[in-house]
Amino acid sequence: MMQPKKRFIEIVQQLRTLIREEHIEEGGKLPSERVLSERLQVGRSAVREALRSLELLGLIETKHGGGTFLSASPQHKLIEVLATFIMDDAGSIEDVHKTRILHEQEAIRVVCTSAELRALPVWESLFIRLEVAEDVVRKDVLREIIITAGNRLSLRIWLQLQAYSGRPLGALITTQEKPYVLTLVKALQLGLTEDALQAHAAWVNNNKDKGVM
Results as ranks from 00 to 15, higher is better:
A46I: 06
H200V: 00
T193L: 08
I128F: 05
I145Q: 00
D209C: 00
M2E: 14
G170V: 04
I145L: 01
E61S: 13
L155Q: 13
R39K: 15
T17A: 13
T84N: 15
I157C: 03
L184E: 03
L70G: 05
A83H: 12
T84V: 05
H200N: 12
V42R: 15
P168Y: 02
M213H: 12
R34D: 08
Y180F: 15
K98G: 01
L117G: 04
L159G: 10
V35P: 06
R152L: 09
R34S: 15
Q176N: 14
R129W: 12
Q3C: 06
N205C: 07
N205M: 14
S32M: 03
A119W: 03
I146H: 02
Y180N: 15
T183E: 09
R20G: 07
K208E: 12
E80N: 08
A187Y: 01
V110Y: 07
E38F: 06
E22H: 09
R20D: 11
R16E: 14
L161C: 11
I108S: 01
F127Y: 11
R167H: 09
E38G: 02
I19N: 02
G28F: 09
E38P: 08
L18P: 02
D195T: 14
E22P: 00
I128V: 08
D195H: 10
D195N: 15
K210I: 07
R109V: 12
G211N: 13
Q3I: 10
E10N: 07
V136Q: 00
R118A: 03
A119S: 13
Q41E: 10
T193Q: 15
E131H: 14
K139Y: 03
V47R: 04
I60H: 02
S71G: 09
G211A: 13
M1W: 10
N151K: 09
I146Q: 02
S71F: 07
L15K: 01
E106R: 11
S114H: 10
G28V: 01
I19Q: 05
V42P: 06
T148K: 03
I24T: 07
I147R: 14
Q3A: 12
S71K: 11
L190V: 04
V12G: 02
L82C: 14
Q162V: 13
K6A: 14
R100K: 05
I19G: 02
Q14S: 15
L56D: 14
R20K: 14
D209H: 01
L188E: 01
L190C: 05
D140A: 13
L56P: 00
H103C: 15
Y164G: 10
T99F: 07
L51N: 06
L153C: 00
F69A: 00
A171K: 09
